[in-house]
């Protein structure tokens, strides 16, 4: 049953593929960023799940607790989430500017405009 016991990793894989697919297949700039977020989130979940220990609690120092999850990945992912938020903000800001410049956020449309120039 190990393959089912590791179900969180399956979720990670599915999310990663979904996100990656959106990034590649979508022509809409905002949707691409949504895809990118899903893709990144899958990596975050992956880290969080590898911190998990059987019968462990949250990594808080309490006197009667001996089994707790590894806190380090949590810390790392906290950082990564911040980075992810910054990236999303940056990406959306760029999309806004692209929209101002081209009046569209569809990639095909934008390329057509550039070619016409």
């Amino acid at each position: 049953m190990t393959w089912f016991g590791l179900y969180s990793y399956w979720i990670v894989v599915v999310l990663m593929m979904v996100g990656f697919y959106i990034v590649i297949a979508q022509g809409n700039l905002v949707k691409k960023i949504v895809g990118l977020n899903i893709f990144q989130t899958s990596a975050f979940i992956f880290f969080i799940s590898l911190a998990w220990r059987e019968d462990g609690t949250a990594p808080i120092a309490l006197p009667d607790v001996t089994e707790y999850a590894n806190p380090l990945p949590h810390v790392l992912i906290l950082t990564a989430i911040v980075v992810g938020v910054a990236l999303t903000a940056m990406g959306l800001a760029l999309v806004v500017r692209v929209h101002e410049a081209y009046g569209s956020i569809e990639e095909d449309d934008i390329h057509r405009q550039d070619e016409q120039q």
Binding site: K32, L36, G91, R97, V98
Partner: peptide, 17 residues
């Protein structure tokens, strides 16, 4: 150039991946 924005965006997507 306005294409700078789009190239930056593409770089962002590929870089983040």
């Amino acid at each position: 150039d306005r294409r700078a924005m789009l190239s930056s965006y593409q770089y962002l997507i590929m870089g983040t991946v």
